[in-house]
């Protein structure tokens, strides 16, 4: 039951977006998010759609994969819509429901906040779909490494994330094994109320934790035997290099941000 898990949502393909330097991708995502937040009116979202469509097209990802990322968001979306529709206030009533008034401002706000949320998630999904978790970690480490001056443990964090990624499948496999062993001796993980089911997990979690700690001890010893002594003086197998395609991506994003900022000046109407 625990197999067939994919870690993160990386979708391996050969595309320009996949090949971009992870550091650049992370920074571009931050720029894009800023862009989504400063979009001044609804018309501005056309620019966001265009930008995202271009990125999606270049990444060769099937569009439905991106949309799938929105599914867990649906309740928050509905909630945001309702809150904004009825509690924004404003001067131009469109519909009076007795207990609340639907205003033009409310309607605009509901659409704006929902679009913001949707585009935030779509953009982030694009990053995680096109970047392998380890590459992402690598990029983060290098982006954060200037903070080492302030004693921020960038290397240690990246190392922990890599090890976690390495051991999640191993521990899942082990959990599966323990579960089967317990089931064979009559343990029941599937029926009962929530509380009973949670209680049934205890005999699973205890051995799992014990073994995880043991593995941690073993791994630390093995890492030490292989000369691991922290991030200092360490070289890397992969050299990250900002290439021409990265500069083009940066340029496109810069144009996008500029257009978003300037948009009210060349669009006559305001929504």
């Amino acid at each position: 039951m625990l197999n067939n898990i994919t870690l993160g949502q990386y979708y391996p393909l050969k595309s320009v977006v996949h090949a971009l330097d992870p550091r650049v991708k992370i920074l571009l995502l931050i720029a894009y998010i800023a862009g989504v937040f400063i979009v001044p009116d609804l018309t501005g979202f056309v620019l966001v759609v265009l930008y995202l469509a271009l990125a999606c097209k270049l990444s060769k990802l099937p569009f439905r994969l991106l949309i799938k990322g929105l599914k867990p968001l649906r309740f928050i979306l509905i909630f945001t819509c309702i809150l904004n529709l009825f509690f924004t206030g404003g001067e131009t009533p469109l519909l009076n429901l007795g207990f609340a008034t639907l205003t033009r401002e409310g309607l605009i706000n509901a659409v704006r906040y929902s679009l913001r949320l949707i585009f935030l998630v779509l953009g982030s999904s694009l990053l995680t779909l096109t970047t392998a978790p380890v590459t992402l970690t690598d990029g983060l480490e290098r982006l954060l490494s200037p903070l080492k001056v302030l004693h921020f443990p960038a290397h240690e964090m990246a190392m922990m994330m890599t090890i976690a990624l390495r051991f999640i499948p191993t521990l899942l496999e082990e959990a599966d094994k323990i579960m089967k062993a317990q089931s064979a001796r009559g343990a029941d993980f599937e029926s009962g109320r929530l509380f009973e089911r949670a209680k049934a997990m205890v005999p699973l979690l205890v051995p799992l934790f014990v073994s995880a700690f043991r593995r941690a001890g073993d791994l630390a010893m093995a890492m030490e035997a292989r000369c691991y002594h922290g991030g200092e003086g360490r070289t890397r197998l992969h050299i990250l290099k900002v290439e021409k395609r990265d500069w083009i991506a940066i340029l496109i994003t810069a144009v996008f941000i500029a257009l978003v900022i300037l948009e009210p000046h060349f669009v006559p109407w305001h929504l």
């Binding site: 390495r166 043991r214 593995r215 791994l219 093995a222 292989r226």
Partner: peptide, 13 residues
């Protein structure tokens, strides 16, 4: 040094 448990000495993915 190579250890006993093959799972607990590999670091990368």
């Amino acid at each position: 040094m190579v250890f006993q448990n093959p799972d607990n000495q590999l670091v990368a993915t």
